[in-house]
Protein backbone atom coordinates (compact mmCIF):
# COMPACT_ATOMS: atom_id res chain seq x y z
CA UNK A 1 0.00 0.00 0.00
CA UNK A 2 1.24 3.43 -0.94
CA UNK A 3 -0.46 5.70 1.60
CA UNK A 4 1.24 8.76 0.21
CA UNK A 5 -0.55 8.27 -3.12
CA UNK A 6 -3.91 8.23 -1.35
CA UNK A 7 -3.06 11.43 0.54
CA UNK A 8 -2.02 13.30 -2.54
CA UNK A 9 -4.95 12.09 -4.65
CA UNK A 10 -7.84 12.70 -2.28
CA UNK A 11 -9.36 15.13 -4.75
CA UNK A 12 -9.36 12.53 -7.54
CA UNK A 13 -10.80 9.86 -5.24
CA UNK A 14 -13.54 12.18 -3.97
CA UNK A 15 -14.41 13.23 -7.52
CA UNK A 16 -14.72 9.63 -8.69
CA UNK A 17 -16.85 8.72 -5.66
CA UNK A 18 -19.24 11.55 -6.58
CA UNK A 19 -19.27 10.47 -10.22
CA UNK A 20 -19.97 6.91 -9.18
CA UNK A 21 -22.87 8.12 -7.01
CA UNK A 22 -24.27 10.23 -9.83
CA UNK A 23 -24.08 7.29 -12.27
CA UNK A 24 -25.60 4.67 -9.95
CA UNK A 25 -28.42 6.53 -8.17
CA UNK A 26 -30.61 7.07 -11.29
CA UNK A 27 -30.56 3.38 -12.39
CA UNK A 28 -31.57 2.25 -8.89
CA UNK A 29 -34.50 4.69 -8.84
CA UNK A 30 -35.48 3.84 -12.43
CA UNK A 31 -35.29 0.12 -11.64
CA UNK A 32 -37.64 0.55 -8.69
CA UNK A 33 -40.11 2.83 -10.47
CA UNK A 34 -40.36 0.69 -13.62
CA UNK A 35 -40.51 -2.61 -11.77
CA UNK A 36 -43.56 -1.61 -9.70
CA UNK A 37 -46.11 -1.61 -12.57
CA UNK A 38 -44.37 -4.54 -14.29
CA UNK A 39 -44.19 -6.53 -11.06
CA UNK A 40 -47.82 -5.70 -10.24
CA UNK A 41 -48.84 -7.03 -13.63
CA UNK A 42 -46.68 -10.15 -13.17
CA UNK A 43 -48.13 -10.68 -9.69
CA UNK A 44 -51.66 -10.71 -11.12
CA UNK A 45 -51.20 -12.85 -14.22
CA UNK A 46 -49.27 -16.09 -14.56
CA UNK A 47 -48.70 -15.48 -18.30
CA UNK A 48 -47.31 -11.99 -17.70
CA UNK A 49 -45.16 -13.42 -14.93
CA UNK A 50 -43.49 -16.04 -17.10
CA UNK A 51 -42.99 -13.63 -20.01
CA UNK A 52 -41.51 -10.84 -17.86
CA UNK A 53 -39.30 -13.14 -15.81
CA UNK A 54 -37.82 -14.92 -18.82
CA UNK A 55 -37.27 -11.56 -20.54
CA UNK A 56 -35.48 -10.36 -17.41
CA UNK A 57 -33.37 -13.51 -17.42
CA UNK A 58 -32.31 -12.99 -21.04
CA UNK A 59 -31.50 -9.29 -20.49
CA UNK A 60 -29.41 -10.20 -17.48
CA UNK A 61 -27.42 -12.66 -19.60
CA UNK A 62 -26.12 -9.99 -21.98
CA UNK A 63 -22.53 -9.39 -20.93
CA UNK A 64 -22.11 -5.98 -19.36
CA UNK A 65 -19.38 -4.68 -21.67
CA UNK A 66 -21.42 -5.75 -24.68
CA UNK A 67 -24.50 -3.93 -23.42
CA UNK A 68 -22.43 -0.87 -22.57
CA UNK A 69 -21.16 -0.59 -26.11
CA UNK A 70 -24.42 -1.55 -27.81
CA UNK A 71 -26.48 1.07 -25.98
CA UNK A 72 -24.81 4.04 -27.72
CA UNK A 73 -25.08 2.29 -31.11
CA UNK A 74 -28.79 1.65 -30.64
CA UNK A 75 -29.61 5.00 -28.98
CA UNK A 76 -27.32 7.03 -31.22
CA UNK A 77 -25.39 8.59 -28.32
CA UNK A 78 -21.68 9.33 -28.26
CA UNK A 79 -19.73 6.32 -27.00
CA UNK A 80 -18.24 8.25 -24.07
CA UNK A 81 -21.59 9.67 -22.99
CA UNK A 82 -22.17 8.67 -19.33
CA UNK A 83 -25.87 8.27 -20.17
CA UNK A 84 -24.94 4.96 -21.83
CA UNK A 85 -23.84 3.58 -18.48
CA UNK A 86 -26.97 4.89 -16.76
CA UNK A 87 -29.15 3.29 -19.43
CA UNK A 88 -27.34 -0.07 -19.35
CA UNK A 89 -27.41 -0.21 -15.55
CA UNK A 90 -31.12 0.65 -15.60
CA UNK A 91 -31.77 -2.33 -17.88
CA UNK A 92 -30.00 -4.65 -15.43
CA UNK A 93 -31.76 -3.05 -12.47
CA UNK A 94 -35.19 -3.61 -14.03
CA UNK A 95 -34.22 -7.15 -15.05
CA UNK A 96 -33.38 -8.11 -11.45
CA UNK A 97 -36.07 -6.02 -9.82
CA UNK A 98 -39.07 -7.34 -11.78
CA UNK A 99 -38.83 -10.70 -10.03
CA UNK A 100 -38.72 -9.10 -6.58
CA UNK A 101 -41.63 -6.83 -7.44
CA UNK A 102 -43.70 -9.74 -8.75
CA UNK A 103 -42.97 -11.68 -5.55
CA UNK A 104 -43.71 -8.58 -3.48
CA UNK A 105 -47.19 -8.10 -4.90
CA UNK A 106 -47.92 -11.83 -4.84
CA UNK A 107 -47.01 -11.81 -1.13
CA UNK A 108 -49.96 -9.53 -0.25
CA UNK A 109 -52.59 -11.90 1.21
CA UNK A 110 -55.73 -12.27 -0.89
CA UNK A 111 -58.09 -11.81 2.09
CA UNK A 112 -56.51 -8.46 2.86
CA UNK A 113 -57.27 -7.36 -0.70
CA UNK A 114 -60.80 -8.71 -0.44
CA UNK A 115 -61.30 -6.84 2.86
CA UNK A 116 -60.06 -3.60 1.32
CA UNK A 117 -62.49 -3.98 -1.56
CA UNK A 118 -65.30 -4.85 0.85
CA UNK A 119 -64.62 -1.74 2.91
CA UNK A 120 -65.14 0.29 -0.24
CA UNK A 121 -61.65 1.05 -1.57
CA UNK A 122 -61.50 1.79 -5.27
CA UNK A 123 -58.87 -0.07 -7.30
CA UNK A 124 -56.46 2.85 -7.20
CA UNK A 125 -57.02 3.50 -3.51
CA UNK A 126 -56.52 -0.15 -2.78
CA UNK A 127 -53.28 -0.18 -4.74
CA UNK A 128 -51.74 2.87 -3.07
CA UNK A 129 -53.14 2.43 0.45
CA UNK A 130 -53.00 -1.37 0.82
CA UNK A 131 -51.03 -3.30 -1.79
CA UNK A 132 -48.06 -0.99 -2.24
CA UNK A 133 -47.37 -0.50 1.48
CA UNK A 134 -47.70 -4.22 2.18
CA UNK A 135 -45.36 -4.99 -0.71
CA UNK A 136 -42.67 -2.64 0.66
CA UNK A 137 -40.68 -5.21 2.69
CA UNK A 138 -40.13 -7.55 -0.27
CA UNK A 139 -39.61 -4.61 -2.67
CA UNK A 140 -37.04 -3.22 -0.27
CA UNK A 141 -35.16 -6.53 -0.09
CA UNK A 142 -35.06 -6.51 -3.90
CA UNK A 143 -33.88 -2.92 -4.27
CA UNK A 144 -31.09 -3.54 -1.74
CA UNK A 145 -29.77 -6.35 -3.93
CA UNK A 146 -30.13 -4.09 -6.98
CA UNK A 147 -28.25 -1.22 -5.32
CA UNK A 148 -25.32 -3.44 -4.35
CA UNK A 149 -25.00 -5.03 -7.78
CA UNK A 150 -25.45 -1.67 -9.57
CA UNK A 151 -22.63 -0.08 -7.58
CA UNK A 152 -20.31 -2.95 -8.39
CA UNK A 153 -21.40 -3.35 -12.02
CA UNK A 154 -20.91 0.36 -12.78
CA UNK A 155 -17.16 -0.17 -12.53
CA UNK A 156 -17.24 -2.04 -15.85
CA UNK A 157 -17.88 1.37 -17.45
CA UNK A 158 -14.15 1.99 -17.06
CA UNK A 159 -13.50 -0.45 -19.92
CA UNK A 160 -15.26 1.92 -22.32
CA UNK A 161 -13.73 5.00 -20.76
CA UNK A 162 -16.53 6.36 -18.58
CA UNK A 163 -14.80 7.88 -15.59
CA UNK A 164 -15.89 6.58 -12.15
CA UNK A 165 -14.45 4.39 -9.39
CA UNK A 166 -13.86 1.55 -11.87
CA UNK A 167 -11.27 3.73 -13.63
CA UNK A 168 -8.98 2.99 -10.68
CA UNK A 169 -8.97 -0.67 -11.75
CA UNK A 170 -7.99 -0.07 -15.36
CA UNK A 171 -5.40 2.55 -14.29
CA UNK A 172 -3.98 0.15 -11.69
CA UNK A 173 -3.68 -2.62 -14.28
CA UNK A 174 -1.98 -0.40 -16.84
CA UNK A 175 0.47 1.05 -14.34
CA UNK A 176 0.93 -2.12 -12.22
CA UNK A 177 -0.03 -0.06 -9.20
CA UNK A 178 -1.88 -2.14 -6.62
CA UNK A 179 -2.80 0.73 -4.28
CA UNK A 180 -5.12 2.26 -6.84
CA UNK A 181 -7.07 -0.97 -7.32
CA UNK A 182 -7.45 -1.43 -3.57
CA UNK A 183 -8.66 2.16 -3.18
CA UNK A 184 -11.24 1.48 -5.90
CA UNK A 185 -12.53 -1.71 -4.27
CA UNK A 186 -12.72 -0.17 -0.80
CA UNK A 187 -14.61 2.87 -2.12
CA UNK A 188 -17.07 0.64 -4.00
CA UNK A 189 -17.71 -1.52 -0.94
CA UNK A 190 -18.23 1.59 1.22
CA UNK A 191 -20.58 3.06 -1.36
CA UNK A 192 -22.57 -0.20 -1.51
CA UNK A 193 -22.79 -0.20 2.29
CA UNK A 194 -23.91 3.44 2.23
CA UNK A 195 -26.75 2.67 -0.20
CA UNK A 196 -27.75 -0.31 1.90
CA UNK A 197 -27.93 1.74 5.11
CA UNK A 198 -29.89 4.53 3.42
CA UNK A 199 -32.36 2.10 1.83
CA UNK A 200 -32.95 0.13 5.02
CA UNK A 201 -33.46 3.40 6.96
CA UNK A 202 -36.02 4.51 4.37
CA UNK A 203 -37.68 1.11 4.62
CA UNK A 204 -37.95 1.36 8.38
CA UNK A 205 -39.32 4.87 8.17
CA UNK A 206 -42.08 4.01 5.71
CA UNK A 207 -43.18 0.73 7.31
CA UNK A 208 -43.47 1.57 11.02
CA UNK A 209 -46.15 -1.13 11.51
CA UNK A 210 -43.69 -3.74 10.38
CA UNK A 211 -41.45 -3.46 13.47
CA UNK A 212 -44.27 -3.13 15.94
CA UNK A 213 -46.01 -6.21 14.53
CA UNK A 214 -42.84 -8.22 14.10
CA UNK A 215 -42.16 -8.01 17.81
CA UNK A 216 -45.67 -9.11 18.66
CA UNK A 217 -46.03 -11.83 16.03
CA UNK A 218 -42.75 -13.01 14.51
CA UNK A 219 -44.27 -15.06 11.67
CA UNK A 220 -46.31 -12.25 10.20
CA UNK A 221 -44.80 -13.03 6.79
CA UNK A 222 -45.21 -16.77 7.09
CA UNK A 223 -48.88 -17.36 6.32
CA UNK A 224 -47.77 -20.55 4.58
CA UNK A 225 -47.21 -22.16 7.96
CA UNK A 226 -50.78 -21.51 9.00
CA UNK A 227 -51.79 -23.87 6.21
CA UNK A 228 -49.36 -26.52 7.38
CA UNK A 229 -50.66 -26.35 10.92
Amino acid sequence: MNWGWIGSNLGLIGGRVLEHLALTAPPIVIGLVLSIPLGYWAGRSQVARSILLSLGGVLYTIPSIALLVLVPVVLGLAILDPLNLVFALSIYAVAIMVRSAADAFASVPQDVLASATAVGFSRWQRFFAVELPLAVPVLLAGIRVVSVSTVSLASVGALIGIDQLGSFFTDAFQRSFLTEAIVGIVCILLLAALYDVILSRIGRAITPWNHARRMAAPQIYAPQDAEVL
Binding site: V151, A172, I188
Partner: peptide, 19 residues
Protein backbone atom coordinates in the same frame (compact mmCIF):
# COMPACT_ATOMS: atom_id res chain seq x y z
CA UNK B 1 -23.07 -13.49 -0.19
CA UNK B 2 -23.90 -9.79 -0.04
CA UNK B 3 -20.26 -8.81 0.34
CA UNK B 4 -19.31 -11.11 -2.55
CA UNK B 5 -22.04 -9.51 -4.65
CA UNK B 6 -20.72 -6.04 -3.89
CA UNK B 7 -17.15 -6.92 -4.91
CA UNK B 8 -16.58 -5.55 -8.41
CA UNK B 9 -15.35 -8.28 -10.76
CA UNK B 10 -13.13 -5.86 -12.63
CA UNK B 11 -11.47 -4.63 -9.43
CA UNK B 12 -10.92 -8.08 -7.98
CA UNK B 13 -9.53 -9.28 -11.28
CA UNK B 14 -7.08 -6.39 -11.56
CA UNK B 15 -5.86 -6.88 -7.97
CA UNK B 16 -5.36 -10.64 -8.34
CA UNK B 17 -3.63 -10.22 -11.70
CA UNK B 18 -1.26 -7.65 -10.20
CA UNK B 19 -0.54 -10.09 -7.36
Amino acid sequence: SNIARALPTLGLLSILILL
